[in-house]
Amino acid sequence: MVSIVYERGFYYLKHHIQNKEKRKYLGKTIPKNIEQLKSGFLREFYCQEWDDKIQSIGKNYQKEIKKIPQSIQLKNFESFGIAFTYNTQRIEGSTLTQIDTRDLLTFGVTPAKKSQTDTIETKKHYDLFMKLVTSKKRPKLTKKTILQWHRDIFDQTKIGEAGSLRSYRVGVTTNEKIEFTSVAEIPKKMTEFFRWLNRYDDYDKKKNVVEFACLAHYKFVSIHPFGDGNGRISRLIMNYILLKNNFPLMLIKNTDKRVYFKSLEKSQINHDEIHFLKWFMRYYIKENNYFY
């Protein structure tokens, strides 16, 4: 937690964790925008923890993939796509097991006695993912693109809603404190989101691409523009950004669903992305420690 300290007539921001401490000079009075300064200060504190590791992961990954034949890269994408589809679907309550998902996507075997909706959405999610990773062009993301992604996955299971913004209120069943964007505000928030997103599309490579992917996920899912499918689309956006910038893709495991949701909810309740950002960046680094 960031604290304000007063020493020898001057105010400072201070934050420490374990054996690390950082201070920021404020002046003789506490600025009016102190909460904004606290948030930025905390972000700087943690960026020092992960920036070098992320840059190392990116560089080493890009060196690695140059050595791999395209046919093997495709197989790697297929393997990742199956794991990603299983986990992203399972996080949202799919009944398909890992074996069900593998048999469906690898051998075309429809799982017995399992939800037809889950089966269709699993296949459609995987097909969309493979289309994205094998496409020669990776254009900027737009509202039209995202609506099409939603339509591609849900056109057979959410008829009338697939590819359309929601027209009703939604919330989080496990936490009444969280309220997503109102129906009336969704168009405005979506415009703001894509304006923000595309300011970073010609991304400065000195900045943190993984942090950008994390924030895109967080911002989109916090708008919650669809009646269903927001988590799956936000994780696709996240991986599209990583793909476009030649970074390892992110696999959020279903077994880590509880802490994943908890970090998201903490950021949403406090209106501060730092809580989700901390979890995400540490998770990404841990899952890609091979590359640094």
Rank of each mutant, 00 (worst) to 15 (best):
R90Q: 08
G81H: 04
K63S: 07
Q73T: 14
R90P: 07
S94P: 14
E78Q: 15
A112F: 13
Y86D: 02
T110G: 07
T95A: 11
K59D: 04
P111I: 09
Y86S: 13
T95M: 10
L96M: 15
Q62D: 14
Q98W: 12
D103S: 11
I82W: 11
P69G: 08
L74E: 07
I57F: 08
G93V: 11
K113T: 03
A112E: 15
K53Y: 11
Q73K: 15
F84Y: 03
F80S: 02
F84S: 01
V109F: 03
T95Q: 08
K63C: 06
G58Q: 01
D100S: 06
R90D: 04
Q55T: 08
E78W: 04
K67R: 11
Q55V: 02
K67G: 11
K53W: 07
T106R: 06
T95C: 13
Q89G: 12
F107I: 02
L74G: 01
L74W: 00
I82S: 07
Q62E: 08
F84N: 05
F107N: 10
Y61R: 07
D103Y: 13
D100K: 00
T88D: 06
K63E: 15
G108K: 05
K53P: 10
P111K: 12
F84K: 00
T110S: 09
P111W: 10
T85D: 01
R102A: 10
I72W: 13
D103A: 09
S56W: 03
L105S: 00
N76I: 06
I54G: 05
F77L: 00
K53E: 14
F84V: 00
K75Y: 03
Q98S: 13
T101G: 04
L74K: 12
R90C: 04
L105H: 00
Y86V: 03
E78D: 13
S56M: 05
E92D: 11
K75M: 03
K63I: 09
T101H: 05
T88H: 00
K67V: 04
N87C: 00
I68N: 04
T95I: 13
K53R: 15
E78Y: 09
K63R: 15
K66M: 06
T106L: 14
K113G: 02
S56A: 03
I57K: 13
T97V: 10
T101N: 08
L105A: 05
E92Q: 12
Q73R: 10
T88R: 07
A83V: 07
I68D: 14
F84L: 03
S79H: 05
I72M: 10
G108S: 07
S56Q: 02
K63L: 08
A112W: 00
Q98H: 13
T88S: 15
T85L: 06
T106F: 04
